[in-house]
Design a protein around this nucleic acid. Sequence first.
DNA 1: GCGATCGGTTGAAACGTTTCAACCTCCACC
DNA 2: GGTGGAGGTTGAAACGTTTCAACCGATCGC
Lengths: 300, 300
Amino acid sequence: MATVSNVLHRTAPVSEETRRRVLEAIEELGYRQNEVARSLKRRATRTLGVVIPDALNPFHATVALQVERRAHRDGFAVLLAETENDPATESAQVRALVGRRVDGVIFPAVTAGSTIPSELLDRGVPVVVVSFEGRDPRLGTVHVDEPAAMEAVVDHLTGLGHQRIAFAHSGAHEESVDSRPAALAEALARRGLLPVPVKDGATAFCCTNDVIAMALIDRLECDGVCVPADVSVVGFDDIPMAAHRRIDLTTVHQPAEEMGQLAAEMLLSAIAAGGHAARRVIVPTQLVVRGSTGPVRRGG
Amino acid sequence: MATVSNVLHRTAPVSEETRRRVLEAIEELGYRQNEVARSLKRRATRTLGVVIPDALNPFHATVALQVERRAHRDGFAVLLAETENDPATESAQVRALVGRRVDGVIFPAVTAGSTIPSELLDRGVPVVVVSFEGRDPRLGTVHVDEPAAMEAVVDHLTGLGHQRIAFAHSGAHEESVDSRPAALAEALARRGLLPVPVKDGATAFCCTNDVIAMALIDRLECDGVCVPADVSVVGFDDIPMAAHRRIDLTTVHQPAEEMGQLAAEMLLSAIAAGGHAARRVIVPTQLVVRGSTGPVRRGG
DNA sequence: GCGATCGGTTGAAACGTTTCAACCTCCACC
DNA sequence: GGTGGAGGTTGAAACGTTTCAACCGATCGC
């Protein structure tokens, strides 16, 4: 019945009497709109895809969470797709999202060298990527100024006397984190320094993210190396655990909540406007100095 | 065209020649099946809902992750719904899932006293809940033996000489965690003990989960109370961080991965069979003794 | 008092699939 | 040589909405 569509969406005036009767019937029958029929007709699913490499990383989880909240407020649902940091899985997941006709997609991170976003963009699906800079101009991006962040990190470390600084990778191939070693190297170069290999007597480690940093601290201390007495460690993200007294990790704060919300907002307004989210937003980071960094050890 | 449906789903024989031509055309046009039309016709969406109170809790995140992986293997997608531990939001989210006609729903936890699952069950949607025991017989459940776990905890603590044991709640109203204080009280009662209020000179704390336990340790140590020298703390879940040397949390291990996979499997097979997932599975826990518990302090 | 407008209601087409029945051709069988 | 399938193809109905156009009666401006 056309009338019930009208009462549900206020798309045309309907008399008070009819409205009441319709609502009554709905209540009585336990009727629930069939969103899939609606989606088919409207050619819009009010669904966002979130393609996440690893939901266990609190930074990614936070972004996903915020996206979900923001989306929910606008009546959008969120389809969660895990890639396990594997390009083949990522590709399969994106294909599945296309098949399900999501209205937009957010990538909190992307496997290295991925061409996935343009595949979506070509199909007219707006895409926002978080925490790295995409190349496609149709891409919306929310990211931080990594060179500036690394500059601050190096500033802090050299101020403590460190000269032998290494970058600690994760094994995963996320494009986002892959730009960090380069940013570090540049910041070092500006002071005439070179990054040292991990196993080569570094006195300080820059890590790809906080999870890696904590794992590193754990491993170092298992080997009897003290942090920060023997070596300093700095993370990236500032996940809640980093502030714990026992961890007390010096790290680069990324405003994960804001980034997630912002990404969702960009995507939703692009969808509403029927175009791409071609905007680049850079959010500020802040170096949070805690107890995992300290002055370089004499003769270290 | 009916034929292309046949070539895509092998639902009827089709000649090699036609098959080739169809696949060629699909490739050429970049055709992607419209899953929403398919869902409408089939009256099945191949979509699972995961209703999660708080994606930042690693236990929940892990369960959700495993469900996603398992579901993906069977061509199912996962709709993520966050409840923020708020019954109203939970209810809204469930309504949204019903509207989207998910084929099944998993609750890694539920707000206290929720009647949501039966609302779904009445509509014929199979539901599996994780980590607590539901009352509705149509509900599938995957949970641990909390009384036994608490028994082990109390055993451990009393073995160390603790008599004044308190339970540390989270503020959240998850039904799952709400059964733990009772389980603790029972285990204590069996030894003629009563739980003591938190602020009343307890020498050991049982926490609702590891996140709370870590926060508690943090707060205690800010106040100059040493763990485990002054008080002992035990968690629940055994999230990865609990094993970190600097945290070193004694806790009850729940096999989160297995629980997530199991829940997904139960749900998927119920969907395939067209019925409810009316099975109850209890998975074993294990007390992992680490450094956050120690002998009670003389005169403590 | 007549056409235009407005509030309200309704039938029907369309969205992109699946599936059923119909059909067509060819072959084997008795 | 008709009968009965099997292999293969196709038209059309259905899934549950939205939306457009049509319609109907009443009010309004002139």
